[in-house]
């Protein structure tokens, strides 16, 4: 998802009997549905995994501003402009909440930012795809936010208190995001021939990248078990992907759009849709930096950070001057 490739550091899951008393108390608290708070004892692996996961999630929000920000200045009406701007602004806010949650684990936002900018920390693969037409604003809201919500709703119950609380606030604010995307898609799909073509094209380009957001198939995802025991991952990748497909297919039918998967069909036995796997080779290439927009996205973040330095320094210097003037006056 927004944190797709979190490598656990543990070597398999220990049973409660194998644990030290403090780790055992920690795990029992999680098993009982309790929350871990910043000053509580926690295994080093739990802390490290959380920093990576929350950090990736935060970075995804921030980098995720770019593909949609790409269309703010070209939004077709004043109302669409305002809605899109408010949505992209929310993403900045969500990045901010998540950075703050990670900061409770003893890392600074500056550190995390530097690791994003150097390429050491990742963000979701989805934001390395380009937004080429206005219909992409619909597809991103409908599919990308739709996929994100699948993951974020259960994370409201994650074991780490600050992360769970951040997710509550994020889910509450994000409720309109998917709807605004679907609303754009409806207008496009029911609009002129050119608009319908744009809508279909957007679905064609975003369908498989959206499926990739859930991460590799469970059978290839060797590190989930520990994260699930710690309740920092609440569902398996395949569970969420299936749920997403099941919910999205009827919506596409409503729009009169065709999902670009000829194998897609409802399976009466399982009660779910059967669908084609995305091209995982492409996914791994995108993660490695070879997606269509990796270079631009990182360059844009680096440029903003570098060009903002004098502002951050200037305002800080002023605050320090003000403080020393006040002290001198006292």
């Amino acid at each position: 998802m927004y944190a797709q490739m979190i490598k656990s550091t543990g070597k398999g899951i220990k049973s409660l009997d194998e644990m030290d008393p403090e780790e055992r108390a920690f795990q029992e608290r999680i098993n009982a549905g309790g929350k871990i708070e910043p000053k509580d004892w926690m295994p080093d692996g739990y802390r490290k995994n959380l920093i990576r996961q929350i950090g990736q999630h935060a970075h995804s929000e921030i980098v995720g501003q770019l593909p949609e920000g790409n269309w703010i200045t070209r939004a077709p009406t004043l109302e669409r402009k305002a809605i899109l701007l408010a949505k992209v602004q929310d993403e900045a806010g969500h990045g901010l909440y998540l950075y703050c949650a990670a900061e409770t684990l003893g890392v600074t936002r500056d550190q995390m930012t530097r690791d994003l900018l150097s390429g050491k920390m990742k963000y979701s693969s989805i934001f390395n795809y380009p937004t080429l037409t206005w219909a992409d604003m619909g597809a991103v809201g409908w599919l990308v936010d739709g996929a994100a919500i699948m993951n974020q709703v259960p994370l409201q119950r994650t074991s780490y208190g600050p992360y769970a609380r951040a997710m509550v606030r994020i889910c509450k604010e994000e409720s309109f995001h998917q709807r605004q995307g679907f609303d754009i898609m409806m207008k496009m799909a029911k609009g002129t021939e050119a608009q319908r073509k744009m809508a279909q094209d957007a679905l064609n380009r975003f369908w498989f990248p959206a499926l990739m957001m859930f991460g590799p198939s469970d059978k290839d995802s060797v590190h989930s078990a520990q994260s699930m025991a710690w309740k920092i991952k609440m569902n398996t990748n395949d569970e969420l992907r299936q749920k997403f497909v099941d919910e999205t297919v009827p919506q596409a039918e409503y729009l009169g759009l065709t999902i670009p998967d000829e194998t897609l069909k409802f399976n009466g036995e399982t009660g779910h849709y059967d669908f084609a796997e995305p091209d995982w080779e492409e996914f791994f290439q995108v993660l490695k930096g070879n997606g269509p927009c990796n270079t631009e996205r990182l360059a844009a973040r680096n440029k903003a950070w570098d060009e903002g330095r004098w502002v951050r320094e200037g305002l800080l210097a002023h605050a320090e001057k003000k403080r020393s003037r006040q002290m001198a006056a006292e």
Binding site: K48, R52, V107, Q111
Partner: peptide, 17 residues
């Protein structure tokens, strides 16, 4: 597992200033 984001900086810098 494909490349994941190592986060060595966190532990090394003791709760970084």
């Amino acid at each position: 597992s494909p490349e994941s984001s190592e986060y060595k900086g966190t532990e090394a810098a003791p709760h970084g200033k």
